[in-house]
């Protein structure tokens, strides 16, 4: 008989993000999507995770100086930690409002910065936690349970 420990697994992935580097935005999301497909996670859950992670990545690229994405997958859930060194968010409640944005003109011209990122992340995760310190950076934790 297989013991409890035989069935447990934890998979970790780590990516770094450079502020301002829009050419690589989406790389961590794409890798995570591939891994989840290989693990046979259901399509709807993968779609939700990809949307939330992509938005988190774009936030780092658009606002911060640099950041990391730490992904931890076990049998029941995926936990994604996106931490950046950046300007931080003075008022998280305000930032969560649909349409609120502090993105630059260039970022908006690319079609980002419409104030939909954080609401998209909220909508597509089971748990979302944001901690931020002005002038230091922001950490976003997202959890999606596998059905």
């Amino acid at each position: 008989m297989e013991g409890v420990w035989g069935r447990l697994f934890i998979l970790k992935l780590i990516f770094s993000i450079q502020g301002g580097d829009f050419t690589h935005a989406g790389h961590p999301s794409s890798e995570v999507k591939k891994v989840l497909k290989q693990l046979d996670i259901d399509g709807k859950t993968i779609k939700n995770i990809v949307i939330a992670l992509y938005e988190a990545e774009v936030n780092v690229v658009a606002h911060a100086w640099r950041g990391t994405v730490d992904v931890e997958i076990d049998e029941s859930k995926i936990t994604i930690l996106v931490s950046d060194e950046g300007p931080g968010i003075p008022d998280i409640e305000q930032a969560m409002q649909a349409g609120f944005s502090t993105a630059s003109k260039q970022v908006r011209e690319m079609g980002f910065g419409a104030g939909m990122g954080l609401p998209n992340m909220k909508k597509n995760t089971d748990e979302l936690y944001i901690e931020s310190e002005v002038g230091k950076g922001t950490t976003v934790k997202m959890v999606n349970n596998f059905s």
């Binding site: 949307i51 938005e55 690319m110 079609g111 419409a114 990122g117 597509n124």
Partner: peptide, 24 residues
């Protein structure tokens, strides 16, 4: 033409009509 809108609302297999030309 809003990327987050497409990210949040477009569905698999759809054709996306836009004026954005960059690689994102």
């Amino acid at each position: 033409d809003l990327l987050s809108d497409v990210m949040g609302n477009a569905r698999e297999g759809e054709v996306w009509i836009t004026l954005q030309v960059h690689q994102n």
